[in-house]
């Protein structure tokens, strides 16, 4: 089954005629993922790499019954694009755009919450389900198979690049992934670690989840609380990067915009502690993930179908 995307996902791309979208679209098609439609205002009637372009989401929904949007529009137009998708009944939206004004982000997240829409991102590399060969976003680049092979492990990463690297660690350990999700590097994002753990918990194919985290936000603390409440019962293997930042002056951001320590909020050491206390396997060294995956899942993975 995997989570979020599968054979029933009917993707369309908002902003399909842009420079950024063209590479994503060609890689996505080459991987075997079908894209049903694209939206660019004023360019309705054109084709992009064989995909019909429409002026409005409404037309794409009516003609192709699309149900998942990949938003690849510039920051100034993202809020409107997401509102349009939500208004037209789309319940899964991947927002790749970086540097969207924060006030616009909280607006789009607010409407999404009210309408029960799942948002991945903003500022995300996207997600991939290798079994169904479906991906949304730039994830995997020109060779998704290098890092993403089908299997029974879920991957959640706050870093786009480390979504690939972490999925490759899973592959190196002899396993594969159900769905790998880059949740975006910002502090204000739609789906957090906890939200996705809830989905992986319900997914029969997923036997364990690996997370890659960074300083900043309270996503890990929230996930730990979720574990304690019994919301996620499968093995969770976590790595928190950026330990060195704790010894630097407060307020400094390294890495992504969300990776900021303020007071005790966002400290890697406290994230590690919270996750450990909640029963997660927290690896001190990133490479330890391989051995741990083997020992935790060695016998388990592969049985599930």
């Amino acid at each position: 089954m995997a989570i979020l995307i599968d054979k029933n996902t009917r993707i369309f791309v908002q902003g399909i005629t842009g420079r950024e979208a063209s590479m994503i679209v060609s890689h996505t098609l080459a991987y075997g993922t079908k894209i049903y439609a694209g939206i660019t205002p004023g360019k309705g009637g054109q084709q992009v790499q064989g995909i019909p372009v429409y002026d409005t989401v409404k037309e794409a929904v009516e003609k192709h019954n699309v149900n998942a949007s990949l938003v690849v529009v510039p920051p100034a137009f993202t809020l409107d694009a997401v509102l349009e998708a939500i208004k037209n009944g789309i319940k899964l939206i991947v927002v790749t755009t970086e540097n969207i004004p924060q006030h616009d982000v909280i607006k789009l997240l607010y409407i999404a919450r009210k309408e029960n829409v799942i948002i991945i991102g903003p500022n995300t590399v996207g997600m991939i389900n290798p079994k169904d060969r479906i991906k949304m976003g730039s994830i995997g680049g020109d060779r998704p198979d290098r890092c993403f092979v089908p299997g029974n492990v879920g991957v959640i990463s706050r870093s786009g690049g480390m979504t690939a690297e972490t999925s490759w660690m899973v592959k190196r350990a002899g396993f594969g992934v159900t769905t790998s999700v880059g949740i975006g590097g910002d502090s204000f994002i739609g789906s957090t670690i906890k939200d996705l753990l809830a989905l992986y918990e319900k997914d029969e194919e997923t036997e364990a989840v690996v997370t890659f985290s960074e300083p900043g936000t309270s996503f890990e603390e929230d996930a730990a609380q979720f574990l304690k409440e019994g919301g996620f019962t499968k093995p969770l293997i976590s790595f928190v990067a950026g330990k060195f930042t704790e010894n630097l002056p407060e307020g400094t951001v390294f890495g992504h915009a969300g990776a900021m320590i303020s007071g005790n909020t966002g400290r890697p050491s406290l994230k590690v502690k919270a996750l450990q206390e909640a029963g997660a396997h927290v690896v001190e060294r990133y490479d330890d993930m391989i051995g741990l995956l083997k020992s935790v899942l060695g016998e388990k993975v592969g049985e599930a179908k």
Partner: peptide, 16 residues
């Protein structure tokens, strides 16, 4: 180093 997360990881390892 490169990548937001990749750079954090790389720096941590050298320090450790």
């Amino acid at each position: 180093c490169g990548g937001g997360g990749g750079s954090l990881l790389s720096f941590d390892v050298l320090v450790s």
